[in-house]
Design a protein around this nucleic acid. Structure first.
Lengths: 94, 94
DNA sequence: TAATTTGGTTTATATTATAAACTTATTTAT
DNA sequence: ATAAATAAGTTTATAATATAAACCAAATTA
């Protein structure tokens, strides 16, 4: 009846992160932070979890002398997101 | 950008409960338990939270000699559910 | 009358989410 | 030159949540 919701995606911030990344080829830490209105600490933790799950890739580099963290959604991430949305329909369809 | 998701509804079990109740005039504890595949303890706790929030009403009565808990969604609950679904669209629309 | 079932509630634990505090390096101002 | 402020995150501590296990009372069945 009700499909299980992927707990990694059923989180307000992580879902917002995935939503931001879906629309884009890549996005850096601060852009995601602005779009999601997250605190840096919270975002850092949640990006780690998404990366651990293989839903995003995180690349740490530099822009000039400043560190720059760039994130991309992976094919597995896209698939997981689609599954999540599909599962959600059980809950919200009328 | 991303609307805040009502934390009372952004919970797998509570959302499933609301989803069940939306389709029905009323439902008793065990029916909801079956539909959602929840344990009794978990369901009891989550029904309390929904009732505290005024999203459902819970009526404890008897059927014959056996206790029977009947739940109904309230107008506030319907409104909250609709708001939640509307907010979700920010996150899942492509 | 002892064991089992029904219909739950309460309590304890594990997991999560989140913010606050901290770190390291870079600019900017004095 | 050096002190203060800013940038870009990470780590750690705390609060909130979800969940199952343990429990309880009444009714039914063996």
């Amino acid at each position: 009846m009700f499909k299980k919701l992927d707990p990694l995606l059923h989180s307000e911030l992580r879902l917002a992160v995935m939503s931001v990344l879906l629309g884009l080829k890549e996005a850096d830490f601060n852009y995601i932070k602005e779009q999601t209105q997250a605190t840096a600490g919270n975002l850092s933790v949640q990006l780690d979890k998404l990366a651990q799950a293989g839903y995003i890739s995180v690349e740490k580099g530099f822009e000039g002398k400043r560190p720059k963290t760039t994130c991309r959604i992976t094919p597995a991430g896209i698939q997981a997101f689609e599954n999540y949305v599909e599962s959600l329909k059980d809950y919200i369809k009328r």
